[in-house]
Structure formats: structure tokens, C-alpha cells
Design a protein around this nucleic acid. Structure first.
Length: 104
DNA sequence: CTGGTGACCGCTT
DNA sequence: AAAGCGGCCACCA
């Protein structure tokens, strides 16, 4: 069984429902360690399965998209989220409405 | 093997 | 309010 931390992170990210966003810290918490937030970012950075892992649904605790999103630019991530129905306010996502707490 | 770094978060000055 | 530091995991030199 792949009980690697990275694998767990990927599993959680894949569970994020469409039209919903999640924070690095929340994912880390679901994985089992709230301090893995950094590792979460790195895990998505390697992104072994683009198209399968909805990394664009992951934002920081501020609701802002990552600046290092070197995939068509940050605007690309925002575009994908808006396409799913996620609303952006002042360049960030109102987590109060779109935050996914992992409880499906 | 050691050291440094990275899509972060929270606590402490 | 702003800045600094530690923590966790994996990868590269």
C-alpha cells in the first residue's frame, strides 16, 4: 500500500469536488500533519499526473492562488476555477463559500 | 551522508 | 501591523 505522504496528498487533492477549493493547510491536515503544508506545495509542484490531480483547486489559506503557478500563469488557474463556477472576489476566493473541508 | 530549497502555515517577537 | 523562525517531506548538488 502506498502510504507515502506524497501519495496521501495526491489522494486528498483528487477527492476535491468540482467547483470547490481547498487550502494547503487543510490538505495537510487531512493527510495527518497540518505542518505538511509545504510538502503539499512541493507535491503539487512535481504533479506526476497533470489532468488527474486538480492542483488548480488548491489555494493558500488566504484564498489566493499561488504565485509560482508556472502553468500558463496564475490567470490560468483562476480561469479554470471560474469555469467550474468558483467566484473570485478581489483576486481571491471567498473560502466561506467554496472551501472544501474534506468531508465530501 | 550533509546541506539547502520549495506551490505553506502558525506562533512568537 | 510587520517580520522572523521552526516544522514537515522529498529531491538535487
Amino acid at each position: 500500500m502506498s502510504e507515502n505522504t506524497f501519495t496521501k496528498i495526491y489522494e486528498v487533492v483528487k477527492k476535491i469536488p468540482r467547483g470547490r477549493v481547498c487550502t494547503y493547510g487543510q490538505i495537510a491536515l487531512l493527510v495527518g500533519n497540518p505542518r505538511l503544508s509545504r510538502v503539499v506545495g512541493y507535491a503539487l509542484h512535481v504533479n506526476p499526473e497533470p489532468g488527474v490531480i486538480p492542483c488548480h483547486r488548491v489555494v493558500n489559506r488566504n484564498g489566493e492562488v499561488s504565485r509560482a503557478f508556472a502553468f500558463g500563469g496564475e490567470n490560468m488557474q483562476i480561469q479554470l476555477l471560474e469555469d467550474e463556477g468558483v467566484e473570485f472576489v478581489a483576486g481571491r476566493v471567498p473560502l466561506d463559500r467554496y472551501m472544501w473541508y474534506g468531508d465530501e
